[in-house]
């Protein structure tokens, strides 16, 4: 048994292990999963001196309250997150993108994400996780991944199998930009929608519904009218695909999405905007902007360069 562990005093709303996700399993019905906001996942690992693809704890909205038991360890939190560290007699307001050392008995209280959805907690070491298809990522719908595929619960222990010897303090400045505009490439069923429907999709604002989770983001607002057929023959889905079911309210597929579906696809969110998309919180506005494939490819190159740049600065 491990002597270093977190005790979960409060689990939070949707607290899971995540990493880079699983590839090459769509054909048997298993989605990619993995950290929703990939850039913040990578930065979390870099801030504690880890290899970039190690498991981290992902939380949504309200995060966990954790009590640490064990040898000194560094932690870091990324995203736009409000948290406190409770050490013996004092309480510290924590800053994201800055590592902190925890000692036996210290507590981390992740109060909430600030007008965003996901945040990440990394440790300078490794969690004791079970890998399935090479990934620890917890998919709570299919019960796949570490922790028997379930989100963390109150009273559970999160065991740490290894602590790094090098625990240098690290810090960087990064501001998560809040966006409303999400860039989209037209989908394969774009012509299933009425001229008005197409106009509404690219010109009007939508509101992110409370019914959004790691599987999908549901939108509310003006209805998008379908003039051809509200059902197509079921076919493959990807994260970022925007389907419009019969009721005219778009649904964007996110990392734990069903692998096939039968609603017409009006558009696909470009890869460069995915991290920012998942951080748009329920109640917030979202607006789509049409973009061509070649521009989307260029924007992804820029996004990648920026990510690599941020990592190399830590």
């Amino acid at each position: 048994m491990s002597n270093n562990y977190f005790e979960i005093l409060r689990a939070g709303i949707n607290t899971t292990f995540q990493d880079k996700g699983r590839n090459n399993l769509y054909h048997i019905g298993i989605p990619f999963s993995g950290a929703m906001d990939n850039r913040n996942y990578l930065l979390a690992n870099k801030l504690v001196g880890n290899k970039l693809d190690l498991p981290v704890i992902e939380f949504a909205y309200q995060g966990p309250l954790l009590k640490y038991n064990g040898d000194k360890i560094n932690i870091a939190i990324t995203g736009d997150v409000i948290f406190e560290l409770k050490k013996k007699d004092n309480k510290i307001q924590g800053n994201c993108y800055e590592s902190y050392q925890l000692e036996n008995g210290d507590e981390i209280d992740i109060l909430s994400t600030n007008k965003s959805v996901y945040g990440y907690l990394s440790i300078s070491g490794e969690y004791n996780v079970k890998l399935q298809w090479g990934s620890c990522s917890i998919n709570t719908k299919a019960n796949i991944g570490s922790n028997n595929g379930k989100k963390f619960d109150n009273g559970q222990k999160i065991n740490i199998s290894k602590i790094n010897l090098n625990q240098e303090k690290k810090k960087t400045n990064y501001l998560n930009s809040k966006v409303e505009n999400i860039r989209v490439i037209k989908g394969t069923n774009f012509d299933y929608f009425s001229e008005d429907g197409k106009k509404i999709f690219f010109e009007k604002e939508f509101i992110v519904s409370k019914l959004s989770d790691r599987m999908g983001m549901r939108l509310e607002g003006p209805k998008i009218e379908n003039i051809v057929n509200t059902n197509i023959k079921s076919e493959g889905l990807l994260k970022g695909v925007i389907q419009v079911p019969t009721d005219g309210n778009p649904i964007i597929m996110l990392s734990d999405h069903g692998t096939i579906g039968g609603y017409p696809k009006i558009g696909v969110v470009i890869s460069a905007d995915y991290d920012r998309l998942v951080q748009i919180s329920p109640g917030s506005k979202i607006k789509f902007k049409e973009i061509e494939l070649s521009d989307a490819e260029t924007l992804f190159k820029l996004y990648e360069m920026e990510t690599q740049n941020l990592i190399s600065q830590i």
Binding site: N23, N24, Y26, H27, F32, K233, S234, E235, L238, I260
Partner: peptide, 12 residues
């Protein structure tokens, strides 16, 4: 290539 999704009449 990181995923293949065959369906009735499409392959993604």
């Amino acid at each position: 290539i990181n995923n293949l999704t065959p369906s009735y009449n499409k392959l993604i």
